[in-house]
Amino acid sequence: MDDWLKQCIKEVKAGDPEAFAQIVEAYKDKVYQIAYRMVGNAQEAQDVAQEAFIRAYTNIDRYDTNRKFSTWLFRIATNLSIDKLRKKKPDYSLDAEVSGTEGLDGYSQLAATDALPDEQVVTLEWQASIQEEINALPPKYRAAIILKYMEDLSLQEMSEILDLPVGTIKTHVHRGREALRKRLKKW
């Protein structure tokens, strides 16, 4: 583990919340990305990512410093995302069509300003369309694809984050990849 991180965790454990700001700053994009890709929209992603950091802060004494910090943090974020999806499930089918466009939130807001260069608008559209395809995956395959291809994690780390055997992770990656392949064929 990096020295600065070790130091920050030590300070947070000793009761200094300011040191935690450095940790948030360092991991916010990755945690937000996991949350965003999992839940599929910006508002809930922010809630989940924020909650993940708050839980990390309040449970910092339970973090084992011999293990990788990001693995522990991503595990919290992934579990919270899956919980969020599970709670949404009842109205999932009703929202299925809408859920894809939720990803457009950021785009719609930004487009309203009319101040963006074309290539940025295209990038946002692109992001939203891919998110739509990811939203169509069942949560467990979605988690596998996000962690492997977006966060670039090893199967071993994924196994620790998702609390599943490596063999199961592999199967989830295969199925997620196949589902995406079928959906993205037309692209």
Binding site: V24, D29, Q127, I130
Partner: peptide, 15 residues
């Protein structure tokens, strides 16, 4: 395609 979409950042003032 999935990898090309993977760079999003947290909202401003997140920390």
């Amino acid at each position: 395609l999935v990898q090309s979409a993977s760079h999003i950042t947290a909202p401003s003032k997140f920390t």
